[in-house]
């Protein structure tokens, strides 16, 4: 299984990621998930979220998750991009792509990967108040 992990403070460039996709002749399913920042947190408006990570551990834990993915499902590739630092409302903070032979394993693996990420990968977020970056 090919794997690609990017933790970045740069905006997620979805068209560039899609353009860089490579598929074998066996691929039959591409599941893509994009997590975007909501405009409110606990009912209060926010302008975005500021993501912090313990980066060395985050990379290690993502790799452990990818190892498990590889054992559990016959996948061709996984690519994951997670933003760090400030991310404005409606911008993507997470981009995931899972490529497999069939949709069943691609959907299941993508869902499991994100659930595991939220359980063990050391990334935290704090809300940015509306006035901090011009308001929304």
């Amino acid at each position: 299984m090919r794997r690609e992990l990017t933790l970045t403070t740069e905006p997620i460039d979805e068209p560039a990621l899609i353009a860089a996709r490579t598929l074998s002749g066996q691929a039959g399913a591409v599941v893509q998930f994009v997590g975007v920042v909501r405009g409110s947190e606990l009912g209060a408006p926010i302008s975005g979220l500021d993501y912090e990570s313990f980066e060395a551990m985050a990379r290690h834990q993502f790799n452990l998750i990818f190892n498990q993915l590889e054992k559990r499902w016959p996948l061709e590739s996984v690519r994951l991009v997670h933003r760090l630092g400030p991310v404005r409302t409606n911008e993507p903070s997470l981009w995931v792509e899972v490529v497999a032979g069939h949709r069943g394993e691609a959907f299941a693996a993508c869902q499991w990967l994100i659930d595991e990420m939220k359980r063990i990968v050391p990334i935290w977020k704090r809300p940015l108040p509306p006035k901090e970056d011009g308001g929304r």
Binding site: G35, Y51, M57, H82, S93, M117, K118, P122, I123, W124
Partner: peptide, 10 residues
């Protein structure tokens, strides 16, 4: 050693 609150990625 690192101490931290529950993680919140995504």
């Amino acid at each position: 050693v690192s101490f931290f609150p529950p993680v919140q990625g995504g």
